[in-house]
């Protein structure tokens, strides 16, 4: 178990190093510099822009050679300092992320977990029941092939504009003030629902299809047939099939995290829902190096961490992995 984990950890560390380095490098090689662009949009007195320009270049150390900037970047990273945003000067990148990331969590976590659980259950039912299957499969395929932003628009149009049940944008009403009271929580929930529903439904289809195929495959394997000939009940055979079928689904979860996060960026834009997604899109548009770095760093950490959790879960649910590393087999 320790060997398994330490091997995984080493891989994650290497991945982290390269991902962070790339994410430092790429924005700096895109043509254009954030300060000139920022300043070009201000009306100012003759000569005023030069003063600001030199002030900024010094403040952000952009006049130093690249290698020095790179070393400085790692140095401050170890101190937990992600720098200061250029476009949202003088806010520290860490503060911007802290304010935004909570909105990502409350959409992503429930939608990933619930769609995975419910999708697998529905898929399992679909796999053994032909009637249900005939009805559900087209729905699953429709859901999984929908692009996030398109599905978000559909959800927004149907539930927001036509039925008028849910507000079409933002995290809570303009007249609300955040606080621990029912009025606010209810209002927050109403705003949260449509982005959540979008993320939930699009993911659901994929999991259900995967599970359905796995169940059909497992019920045709030799061990199932053997159990059947021994006279085991259908339910027992299905349960064994489910336990085996869930393994690739767990791996699938780890693999699809990247797609899910990019899907959430698009969903946030459609609903003007705050979060890292929009922050990042803006930062990239304006080549705000420090904010891009910070956002990506967070995403990298989130994806790696989620993968790590999946690895641990995998070990728990698959005895073969557990035993192979502890030398029992």
């Amino acid at each position: 178990m320790g060997r398994y984990l330490s091997k995984k950890l080493a891989i994650y560390l290497v991945t982290f190093f390269f991902a962070v380095t790339l994410n430092w490098l790429i924005p700096r090689f895109v043509p254009g510099d954030p300060i000139t662009s920022l300043l070009a949009r201000f009306a100012s007195l003759e000569g005023g822009k030069e003063i600001l320009q030199s002030y900024f270049v010094q403040t952000f150390g952009l006049d130093k050679p690249l290698y020095a900037q790179y070393i400085g970047f790692w140095r401050s990273l170890f101190r937990g300092d992600l720098g200061i945003s250029i476009t949202r000067y003088p806010a520290p990148v860490m503060d911007i992320i802290k304010d935004a990331v909570i909105y990502d969590y409350i959409i992503l976590l429930p939608s990933i977990v619930l769609s995975w659980i419910i999708g697998n259950k529905l898929g399992a039912v679909s796999g053994v029941n032909k009637k249900v299957d005939n009805f559900m499969m087209p729905v699953f395929y429709f859901l999984t092939s929908s692009p996030y932003f398109w599905f978000a628009l559909v959800v927004s149009y149907v539930f927001g504009i036509v039925l008028g049940i849910f507000p079409t944008s933002h995290a809570y009403s303009a007249t609300m003030r955040p606080g621990w009271n029912w009025a606010f929580i209810a209002d927050f929930f109403m705003h949260w629902f449509m982005p959540f529903l979008t993320m939930f439904l699009v993911q659901l289809g994929g999991w259900a299809i995967g599970m359905r195929n796995m169940i059909i495959y497992e019920t045709n394997t030799n061990y199932s047939k053997y159990m059947e000939s021994l006279g085991a009940s259908d339910k027992l055979i299905r349960n064994y099939g489910f336990r085996n079928g869930i393994l690739p689904q767990v791996t699938g979860l780890a693999i699809s995290l990247g797609t899910i996060i990019s899907g959430s960026v698009l969903t946030q834009v459609v609903f003007s829902y705050p979060g890292l997604g929009y922050t990042m899109v803006q930062a990239i548009k304006e080549s705000d190096y420090f904010l891009i770095q910070g956002c990506f760093l967070f995403l990298i950490l989130m994806v790696l961490l989620a993968n790590f959790v999946v690895d641990i879960v995998y070990m728990i649910i698959d005895p073969r992995v557990r035993h192979s590393y502890s030398g029992e087999v």
């Binding site: 000067y89 806010a91 911007i96 303009a174 007249t175 609300m176 029912w182 606010f184």
Partner: peptide, 28 residues
Amino acid sequence: VSSSAFALAAERNETLIVGGGPWSPATS
């Protein structure tokens, strides 16, 4: 329950809701 009285900062008809100026939250 007691705090819900403070949920609304101002009534809707005392609040002007506008858009088009800022593209990111206030930082300065």
